[in-house]
Design a protein around this nucleic acid. Sequence first.
DNA 1: CGGACTTTTGAAGTAATTCAAGGGGAGTGG
DNA 2: CCACTCCCCTTGAATTACTTCAAAAGTCCG
Lengths: 232, 232
Amino acid sequence: MEDQADVEMLGRTELFRGAPVDLLRDIQRAAFRKRFSAGDTVLQQGDAAATVYIVVAGRLRATQTTLDGQQVIIRYLGPGEVAGYAALAGGETFPGAVIAVDDCHLIGWSATAIQELMARHAGIAINVVKLLGARYLDIQVRLRELSTEKVERRIAHTILRLAQQAGRRTVRGIEIVFPLSRQDLAEMSGTTLHTVSRTLSAWEERGIVACGRRRVVVAKPPLLEAIAEEPD
Amino acid sequence: MEDQADVEMLGRTELFRGAPVDLLRDIQRAAFRKRFSAGDTVLQQGDAAATVYIVVAGRLRATQTTLDGQQVIIRYLGPGEVAGYAALAGGETFPGAVIAVDDCHLIGWSATAIQELMARHAGIAINVVKLLGARYLDIQVRLRELSTEKVERRIAHTILRLAQQAGRRTVRGIEIVFPLSRQDLAEMSGTTLHTVSRTLSAWEERGIVACGRRRVVVAKPPLLEAIAEEPD
DNA sequence: CGGACTTTTGAAGTAATTCAAGGGGAGTGG
DNA sequence: CCACTCCCCTTGAATTACTTCAAAAGTCCG
């Protein structure tokens, strides 16, 4: 019966949405479960792209690191989302790493299993197309922001995006549900932790956000949106 | 017989690679041809995502423009490449514009026709997955460069990438085959035309590149690569 | 040959990084 | 339970890479 719950969960993911139940059962049987603790590496940059995961619970961070150790956060992944696109798209190796931010529970498949699945069921391949299309859209927007906006606006956009995809309504405002350091925000916004810290302090003074150690709460979303949209 | 040539051409594109000949013929029959002159808008940002094109000849530029008129160049598209991903991925509207840089010859399909094709032939859907995966990889790398590198390196990377995908070997070096202004390079590198101009002038002095009005030739690729890789 | 566009170059200004130092919380181990 | 240590965060001051402002010189095209 836990399997039954799994099947239902799979049917709601972006990857397997719309698949008939008996197919979902086959998919579920071909999968393996895996748990990771906060800080563990789920996929290593440069490793052979041999596995695809779906997040069941917890939060992952997809990063890319340069030769000289500088890191960029590509995105955070929450429940229902897919880690390891390279394995879907037939890439040789993973272009970035995926790290567990929380304790995580994942379900995984081999790249070959998923690719066979796509070849046999166009519907699943189309789900992958949609999912990649959505990611591409996202990242295109971030590229534009990074190119054209000043730091404060970029940080505002970054936080608003995170609040959107991983925000919980509380009495104090919208809280981002996973631990998020100034350094993390810097690596998403293309700046330094110092600038993020200064910016958040200024916002805190204006009551727009409330922050703690690796915690961010957006107290006044409209004001933050205003900052995100105001011209440079 | 022109149709026959078309069918062969289609079989070599990233979108229809591997499709059987009779399917290619059907695809070809469902297509329409269209020509654009340099400067024409092929797809308008915000319009309904109702068309997909393949470039037969010429060069396109995919851009994204902000409310306040600032523009970013997402990528250039050459023969065999696909314009209008949004229509493939089931997006509502085009997130950016596509402009003809040259005089262009395109082949197009309606979004519904292509989506039906993907649903009926998993192989084509998988081609789309690969193509989007490759784009995603590309843009991820650019995001990282934009976040972590200084302007000179970014410009170097931009030019090297263009030389790679649209370079022609000549006695003077690798020439980028389409007209490319300082402004264009700025919009790809996340800087201003002034900085690009200064940087190219400096490189020209060292014999690394040779430039003209909307022309760029990489005279010494190894030196440019060295600049692209040197730490900040 | 006029006019529009592209490019160059200098000078001034500034946003953000880098450098530097210290403070504070959370967890660990005695 | 307290002290110790490791992170994480903050804040000032100095520096700089890049933009912005401004003006002029080329270059192409009709």
